[in-house]
């Protein structure tokens, strides 16, 4: 790739940041070039994120209807899947899957709720209820949001 072919597509996923790429100048020597994004790459990211949001929305609707526990909704919202959540809390997958059932989730003791809350980064009080509107992007600690431009 030539330095003047390095894409500068201002990808929204970069949030104004740049990424470093290696490209060759007119003499064929390698240079470091900062790139503001490449459409091909950000399209791929957006496609994956849209799918994630779609799944989260389905889970939110199910949780609102009372078919599943809020746990599954928050898991998807925090971009986890069954395997990674089970690993993060140190449980078998079938146990986590069981906690997706409202009846089983409602019987969880505070110790187990704390483990889930820790793994997902969501306070216990929020973890136990489904929000009124379908928030689909990751739940951030309010103290952290200032860091993101």
């Amino acid at each position: 790739m030539k330095t003047d072919h390095v894409p500068q597509d201002n990808s929204p996923t970069y949030y104004g940041h740049t990424r470093l790429l290696y490209a060759t100048d007119a003499e064929g020597r390698y240079r470091q070039v900062q790139s503001t994004g490449w459409e091909a790459e950000s399209d791929a990211t957006m496609l994956a994120l849209d799918d994630q949001r779609r799944q989260t929305r389905c889970a939110w609707e199910d949780a609102r209807a009372g078919n599943i526990s809020p746990l599954k909704y928050y898991m998807l919202r925090q971009r986890m899947d069954l395997a990674s959540l089970a690993q993060a809390v140190g449980l078998w997958q079938w146990r986590v899957r069981r906690h997706f059932r409202p009846a089983a989730f409602d019987r969880l003791d505070s110790g187990m709720l704390n483990r889930y809350s820790e793994a997902l980064g969501i306070p216990v009080a929020d973890l136990c209820r489904v929000p009124d509107s379908a928030a689909l992007d990751i739940w951030l600690d309010p103290a952290q949001e200032r860091c993101c431009p």
């Binding site: 990424r19 790429l21 290696y22």
Partner: peptide
């Protein structure tokens, strides 16, 4: 979605472009 995943592994995760090929060159 699978194709998007391949592209992300190649470009998005900080590879210097083309899945580390430019870095190695």
């Amino acid at each position: 979605l699978f194709l998007a995943h391949v592209i992300r592994m190649q470009e998005e995760i900080g590879t210097g472009g083309a899945g580390f090929r430019f870095l190695y060159a």
